[in-house]
């Protein structure tokens, strides 16, 4: 066997496809929350007065503050993507850092808000709550379930953004490992790595002593080149983060502003 065996490094990247997949995922998240909004709508129809009464107990100031915090974090993440697209990595990282910080502020606020409610004995199944009328009970149950589920999404979003922060900080590096188990077929032949059409390099002939062929290639963007792989990751994480923001845009008036 004297033939040349080609190991092709072919990378298929389709950023629009990646965004498409992300949007489909966002739609599933939207439907997930729809289930909760549906329940909210039906129970509100049934217990309108009780909902109004119960919502008086929520703190509009904290709610408004949190709304502004999330809106601002949405802005910073959008700006961070824009900065990375213009290859201002540092600015992008600062803005992303700000987003993560604002997410944390939101969660801390939420912690104190829930904490105060629980301190007053208002939590699902508590004696204090169970003595109230049914509409108020279901209002607070929904409040905890919906803001809890939303909070969980904030937490996940924060994690994802942090992960991407690290990726951008480390620059885009990708390691390809070509592992070839068919060594016996390669014996006596030359091996060539072909990238693109004809470019590439060759190594020496492989003899019987070779047991394994493994080639590692590390990809790194040249300086001045836009960091495409990280841009798409950040963009998709940004899309997720905006969705979290939109859910809150609806939760806020429905729970805080109906008194």
């Amino acid at each position: 066997m004297k033939s040349i065996h080609a190991l092709t490094v072919a990378e298929h990247r389709d950023f629009e496809g990646a965004r498409l997949g992300m949007w489909l995922f966002l739609i599933t998240e939207l439907i997930l929350f729809t289930g909760m909004f549906l329940l909210y709508a039906m129970y509100r129809l049934k217990y309108a007065a009780a909902f109004h009464k119960a919502s008086l107990e929520l703190d509009v100031v904290i709610g408004t503050m949190n709304t502004l915090v999330l809106l601002t974090s949405s802005l910073t993440v959008a700006l961070s993507i824009e900065a990375l697209k213009r290859n201002s990595r540092k600015l992008s990282l600062w803005l992303l850092g700000a987003t993560i910080f604002l997410a944390l502020v939101f969660l801390v606020n939420k912690y104190f808000e829930w904490g105060a409610k629980i301190h007053h004995g208002i939590y699902p199944g508590s004696q204090e709550l169970m003595q109230r009328n049914l509409g108020e009970v279901i209002y607070f149950n929904l409040y905890y379930a919906m803001t809890g589920l939303h909070g969980l999404h904030v937490l996940v979003g924060m994690g994802v953004l942090t992960w991407i922060f690290v990726l951008i900080a480390r620059k885009s590096r990708k390691k390809y490992v070509v592992h070839n188990p068919h060594v016996e077929q390669l014996v006596g032949s030359e091996i060539a790595i072909v990238k693109g059409d004809k470019e590439g390099w060759r190594v020496d002939k492989i003899d019987d002593n070779v047991e394994q062929v493994e080639i590692t290639i590390t990809y790194e963007p040249k300086s001045g080149e836009v960091d495409l792989p990280n841009i798409i990751k950040l963009e998709n994480a940004g899309l997720y983060w905006h969705l979290v923001d939109i859910i809150w845009i609806f939760l806020f008036p429905l729970f805080y502003l109906i008194s």
Binding site: L7, T8, V9, A10, H12, R13, G17, Y176, V178
Partner: peptide, 11 residues
């Protein structure tokens, strides 16, 4: 969508 990171074409 870096799907086929490496494709090893032998035969």
């Amino acid at each position: 969508m870096a799907s086929h990171a490496i494709t090893e074409v032998q035969h």
